[in-house]
């Protein structure tokens, strides 16, 4: 039984800035982002890759950071919710979520926005069915789903 955790160095680029930290090999990426880097916009809820709260962009594709090891992300290019706005200018998806009430308690919102942004980058004018299929992996316990769909439709029209 090892008493001292095995630690390894992880270097990642998050929202354009490079970070290097030494962490236990068992550190999940969501914990690394929140506690080692202090970027607490990304949330952890279900911890098993189902709810979507921890959604980040990992090398250009959305992924669940709660079931990704930080050491597995060594060398990766990551975008989190903190990197979505351009300075003080919000991303169109963020603007739409505000204007159309796409959030209630807000716990799922960073993940919803990361997923919605990825959808619009992949499909600039999704149908309602396509929005529902893509977003089904992002749960909202406040059940504000229709406002989320309206927000995404509005963001698609605004682009």
């Amino acid at each position: 039984m090892t008493t001292t955790p095995v630690r390894q160095t992880v270097t990642v680029t998050v929202n354009g800035q490079e970070y290097t930290r030494e962490v236990p090999t068992y550190r999940t990426l969501v914990d690394f982002i929140r506690y080692d880097l202090g970027l607490t916009g990304t949330k952890e809820a279900c911890s098993v890759g189902v709810c979507g709260a921890c959604t980040i962009e990992l090398d250009g594709r959305i992924a669940a950071s709660c079931i990704t090891l930080a050491v597995r992300a060594d060398g990766a290019n990551i975008t989190t919710i903190e990197g979505v706005a351009d300075g003080d200018t919000l991303h169109p998806v963020q603007e739409a979520f505000i204007n159309y009430g796409g959030f209630q308690c807000g716990a799922c919102t960073p993940g919803q926005i990361m997923a919605a942004k990825a959808l619009l980058e992949h499909n600039s004018s999704p149908s309602e069915a396509e929005i529902k299929e893509w977003m089904m992996g992002n749960l909202c316990r406040c059940t504000g789903y229709y406002q989320i769909i309206e927000s995404i439709q509005a963001a698609a029209e605004a682009k």
């Binding site: 959305i62 992924a63 990825a118 992996g137």
Partner: peptide
């Protein structure tokens, strides 16, 4: 399979 977030990786 699951969601796009899972299938991506």
């Amino acid at each position: 399979v699951a969601t796009v977030r899972i299938r991506n990786v």
